[in-house]
Every structure is written in structure tokens, then in C-alpha cells.
Computed example of a mutant assay.
Amino acid sequence: MGVLAMKYKVYLTGEQRQQLLDIVRKGSSSARAIRRAHTLLMASEGKTDKTISSTLHISIPTIERTRKQFCTESLETTLKERPRSGKPPKLTSTAEAYLIATTCSNPPSGYGRWTLKMLADRLVSLEVVDAVSESTVFRTLKKMN
């Protein structure tokens, strides 16, 4: 059992317990909210992290984070979805505009059309981006149609 399991013990009021039971029974919330509700209900019943983990098929660190968030913040913030940042796009809107403008321009002399490699190299040579792969250029152009 982790250190957080000992430090953050879950105590639910009757109203909070009912709110969690409603989320679990109705099943209309997000899967993440339902899983967190199950976690908090089981934790308040005194179940160990290992038991919760094997029952709900989630990792012990996930259980510990859920306990911690409930104890340090509130039930509402524990249950709601927070946007996850994800990886920022390699090509910004400005870089996409350069890519499209380059694609629409005449290819270098001696070539009949632009290749993905030539377009990627042109974006780097113009210092629009530090580096870009041919597949990123392809995906961007495909998205733009």
C-alpha cells in the first residue's frame, strides 16, 4: 500500500455518498467519472488500494491520485473532466499557411511538382519550423484537402 493511501483517507457525507451512488447507478456520466465514483465509494468503505485496483482494473497510483484530489480539493473537481493538454501541433497556423502557399507555388526548376521532402525542407530552410517530417507535411496537406 502506498504512502498516499495512509495520508488521504476518504470520509463521505451521506449526501456525497448518495451523489456517488447516483452516478454509478445511472451510468450516464463519463467512464472516468464513474470509475472515480466507484473508487471513492470503495475507499470510504475501508477497502485497500490493492482490492480496489483488482476490482476496478485500475492502477494503485490512479487510486492514490483520486483519494488525494478528493481530500485536498472537492468531490466536484474529482469527478469532473479536466482538459488534458496533449502534445502541441508541430505546425502552427502560420506554418500551415506557409506550407499551403509553397505547395500552390511553382516547384523549383527541374521538377514537375513539389514532393513531400522538398516541402519539408523548404519549411526548414525558411526557418518556419526547426524540423518537420514528411509525414507531418502529408497529414497537414491531407487535412487541408
Results as ranks from 00 to 15, higher is better:
51 T>W: 06
101 A>L: 04
110 G>T: 01
39 T>S: 11
117 K>V: 06
29 S>R: 11
48 T>F: 02
71 C>K: 03
72 T>S: 10
135 S>Q: 15
132 V>G: 05
101 A>W: 05
69 Q>G: 10
95 A>M: 04
75 L>K: 11
77 T>V: 13
134 E>D: 12
42 M>H: 04
97 A>M: 11
136 T>L: 04
94 T>S: 06
46 G>M: 12
43 A>R: 05
66 T>N: 06
51 T>N: 14
109 S>I: 06
115 T>S: 15
59 S>K: 05
34 I>V: 15
33 A>Y: 04
64 E>K: 06
70 F>T: 03
48 T>R: 06
49 D>S: 13
92 T>F: 11
106 N>G: 01
104 C>G: 02
66 T>P: 02
94 T>G: 04
29 S>Q: 13
53 S>D: 02
41 L>H: 02
116 L>S: 01
106 N>L: 11
42 M>Q: 07
54 S>V: 00
35 R>M: 09
106 N>H: 13
69 Q>T: 15
122 R>P: 00
79 L>V: 08
104 C>W: 00
28 S>N: 15
69 Q>E: 15
64 E>Y: 05
68 K>N: 05
63 I>V: 11
95 A>H: 07
123 L>D: 02
56 L>R: 01
77 T>N: 13
84 R>C: 07
29 S>I: 00
54 S>A: 02
95 A>Q: 12
70 F>E: 03
110 G>P: 03
109 S>E: 07
135 S>F: 06
39 T>N: 02
66 T>I: 07
96 E>R: 13
122 R>V: 00
65 R>W: 07
101 A>Q: 14
43 A>M: 08
36 R>G: 02
126 L>G: 01
118 M>E: 11
49 D>V: 03
30 S>E: 09
59 S>V: 07
81 E>K: 14
37 A>G: 04
129 V>Q: 03
48 T>A: 04
128 V>H: 07
60 I>V: 13
58 I>E: 09
67 R>T: 00
131 A>C: 14
62 T>L: 10
135 S>E: 07
115 T>D: 02
55 T>A: 11
108 P>L: 01
39 T>Q: 00
136 T>E: 12
38 H>A: 00
81 E>D: 10
124 V>Y: 03
90 K>Y: 10
57 H>V: 01
85 S>C: 01
67 R>E: 01
100 I>Q: 10
52 I>L: 05
33 A>F: 03
117 K>W: 09
123 L>V: 03
97 A>Y: 07
134 E>N: 15
110 G>R: 07
125 S>F: 01
45 E>H: 00
109 S>G: 00
93 S>T: 12
112 G>F: 00
40 L>D: 06
32 R>C: 07
120 A>K: 05
131 A>R: 15
109 S>R: 11
121 D>K: 10
49 D>R: 09
81 E>I: 09
48 T>N: 00
115 T>Y: 05
128 V>R: 12
